[in-house]
Design a protein around this nucleic acid. Structure first.
Lengths: 152, 152
DNA sequence: TATTGTTATACTCTATAACTATA
DNA sequence: TATAGTTATAGAGTATAACAATA
């Protein structure tokens, strides 16, 4: 449906950081999803492409643990990225269990376009905040993300 | 899987508010989901209960639009809440198309426990922030949520 | 004609267990 | 025995269209 009606929503929900984070996260996901559909991609596929551009060749387990994707799920994602011609799986001579996953040229081009699309989404999300507020928000959010990474 | 490895994640992802929001939102959802499982509830069910406690009797369309749930989806949610004994659908004499949805006594009790659980999640999410930082973050997040509610 | 609740369908994301081949 | 990739299955959340009853 989109977004809730904050003016009618009781404070029990709208004043809670947890609820607002869930809503904002889904909103951000929808915006990004709409952008990247032009490339035939969905968010988890895009994340893999962006990661590979930054880090070069990686094994499937490395991709999965870095992005917090189940390695079982990653299999289908890479199948789709291969079908799109964005990614290659090649044998790793040093360990024949492993696949070295790399971007193709088309994948690299897509990664660059994804970068621009991510920036566009940033602009929409942060439209109402001043430059100083954006930095504040980013910094606080990163600390929360680090916290989430650990214990809970 | 849980959370990504921020120390390995390239800045292309970890510096973006959009990506961090998605991650933090899913994390918050998981924390809340784990808490409320003790009541036999999942997040969308809990949202309905919390809304009804605050607003009293509502029609299904009113619940759906306030919470940004598809009214088609809400039908199954209310079926489950009725089965749990938390909610009642009664005829609205003034408009026979409408159902007046209200909390039962068990539903009201559950709503109170949900309030405490939501507070516990807030504590976990904001554990690393000072009181001043929490207010900053909440305020900025609310402005983003309002923005999301409109155009984009 | 428009709205309320409903049914049905389908797609995405996620979680889990178990298998194989290699180490 | 442990690890990398794979297959299969199931659940939750979401989006859409179409229908009957009522306004």
């Amino acid at each position: 449906m989109g977004t809730p009606d904050l003016d009618v929503l009781p404070p029990d929900l709208s004043a809670h950081v947890g609820y607002l984070l869930v809503r904002a996260g889904k909103h951000a996901q929808r915006l990004f999803s709409a952008q990247i559909a032009a490339l035939g991609l969905r968010p988890p596929l895009a994340d893999v492409v962006i990661l590979l551009r930054a880090r070069g060749s990686l094994s499937q387990v490395e991709i999965a643990t870095t992005l917090a994707i189940e390695r079982a799920h990653l299999v289908a994602l890479l199948d789709q990225l291969e079908a799109l011609g964005f990614v290659l799986r090649s044998a790793d001579p040093s360990d024949r269990r492993r696949h070295a996953v790399t971007l193709t040229e088309a994948g690299t081009t897509a990664a660059e376009r994804l970068g621009g699309m991510a920036e566009a989404v940033e602009g929409l999300l942060l439209a109402d905040l001043s430059e100083e507020e954006r930095e504040q928000f980013r910094s606080l959010l990163q600390r929360m993300a680090r916290r989430a990474e650990e214990g809970d």
